[in-house]
Structures are given as structure tokens and as C-alpha cells.
């Protein structure tokens, strides 16, 4: 089932990753405990309003992580999950790895935002391994986050460099988690995914009908 009638157009152009980060920051409920993984999603932190009350979790063992550290503030003992030096905010807390992952698995984390190679219409996620024989597999905390956070959002480009959709009927890459993604934020549109199928929430510089055709969604 796909719906596109009345889908709001959020912008007249394809979003940059920074613009997309701002869209995701807008949608994160105030006061949430949030994990932003590594890479692109960490940009979302720069767009959270100061009064959002969002507490950032980093899986290497910290709550209320602050912005990236610069200059003299760089402390080798204080990094995020991407090993980038960061700072601590008032009210920060440190804990060991088993506790950090119990926070996810135990259902205490509200939202995590991950990158992806592919997401399936039913919410299956593939983001850890291309499956190529010469590729060294590296999973990190992706599988734990995928099954742990109450809401798993994906942030990615909608198409590969060669124009293949990354929102697909069924993932071709090795899976990270089954049916775990609830929302997919892309440069062209935002989608809800899951057992009920795909719903386009918002589009950027492209019509919902055209997207439906390019992705092979079933029009409602």
C-alpha cells in the first residue's frame, strides 16, 4: 500500500545532507534519548534546537554528549562512536559497554539514526556489509541499535551513484536487522516503512507519482 495523494512538498529541490539533517532534527521529539551512530547522522546534532532537551547517547559509553571538540578541548579519552573527539554537556554520564548496549537492547533508547546501503519496504535494514568477497565485514553496534531503539530512522541518499534505488522491495545486501526501520529520510523524500508497506510523507523537488514509479511502489 502506498499513498501519495496530498503528500506535502517540503522543498523545491533535492536536499543536501545538511538540509536532510535539519529535517530529521525537526522530527526528533523533544526530550528524547537519541543515538546518531557514526558518519552522516552525526550532523543532526548540529540542527537540534538548544531547548530540545534531547540527550545524545554514544554507544562507547556516554549520555549527554556535546559537540565535536576543537583545539585545546580535544581529549583523547573522550570520543564519539566514530572515534571523533567530542565534548561533554552538563549532566553527562559515563558507563561501560555492557551497560551502554543494555540501554539499547532493553528498550530505553527512543530513537537511533543510521546510514544504510539498502532498506526494504517492510523495514528490513542492510547497512553493515556489501557482501563482496574482498570486503572486510565490520558491524560495530549497528545490529544492536537496529533491534534496540524504539524508533530506527535511516538517513541516506535515495539512489546509488549509478541511479539504483536504495529503498527496495527486498534487500540484496546482507541484513543488519529484520523489519526494524520505521522511517527513511532521503534527499528526495521521507518515507514511512514497515509491515503496512511504504508511505511517502514528504517530497523534495520530485513528484510523489514519479517517485512511486521509479521505486516500483504500489499506488494506493
Amino acid at each position: 500500500m502506498t499513498t501519495y495523494a496530498g503528500v506535502p512538498t517540503g522543498a523545491d529541490h533535492r536536499l543536501s545532507m545538511d538540509e536532510l539533517a535539519a529535517v530529521i532534527a525537526r522530527d526528533i521529539p523533544a526530550g528524547s534519548f537519541v543515538n546518531l551512530g557514526i558518519g552522516q547522522p552525526t550532523k543532526i546534532a548540529d540542527h537540534l534546537p538548544a531547548d530540545s532537551g534531547v540527550v545524545l547517547h554514544t554507544e562507547n559509553g556516554m549520555l549527554n554528549m556535546g559537540p565535536k571538540a576543537e583545539g585545546d578541548a580535544i581529549d583523547p579519552d573522550l570520543t564519539n562512536a566514530g572515534k571523533v573527539p567530542v565534548t561533554e554537556l552538563p549532566g553527562a554520564a559515563y558507563f561501560h559497554h555492557a551497560d551502554s548496549f543494555a540501554m539499547m537492547r532493553g528498550g530505553h533508547l527512543d530513537v537511533c539514526v543510521l546510514g544504510a546501503y539498502q532498506v526494504a519496504f517492510n523495514g528490513d535494514l542492510a547497512n553493515w556489509h556489501t557482501g563482496r568477497p574482498d570486503d572486510i565485514p565490520a558491524v560495530g553496534g549497528a545490529m544492536d541499535l537496529a533491534i534496540g531503539a524504539k524508533d530506527v530512522y535511516v538517513m541516506m541518499t535515495l539512489f546509488t551513484r549509478t541511479g539504483e534505488p536504495k529503498l527496495v522491495p527486498r534487500c540484496a545486501y546482507p541484513l543488519t536487522g529484520l523489519g526494524c526501520v520505521s522511517r527513511v529520510y532521503t534527499d528526495h523524500a521521507v518515507f514511512d516503512v514497515g509491515p503496512g508497506g511504504v508511505r511517502i510523507r514528504e517530497t523534495y523537488g520530485v513528484g510523489a507519482r514519479e517517485l512511486t514509479e521509479r521505486l516500483g511502489l504500489t499506488p494506493s
Binding site: H97, A98, S100, R105, M143, D144
Partner: peptide, 21 residues
């Protein structure tokens, strides 16, 4: 790894911690 000189077992990060716990 690419030269086949080392064996690798990939374990999800949380499982690595919890299995040691």
C-alpha cells in the same frame, strides 16, 4: 586479513560486551 594471515570473527559490539559480562 587480505593475505589470509589472520582469522576474523565479527561479533556485534553489544554481544561482544555482554558475552564477556
Amino acid at each position: 586479513y587480505r593475505a589470509g594471515k589472520i582469522e576474523l570473527e565479527v561479533v556485534p559490539q553489544g554481544n561482544l560486551a555482554e558475552r564477556m559480562r
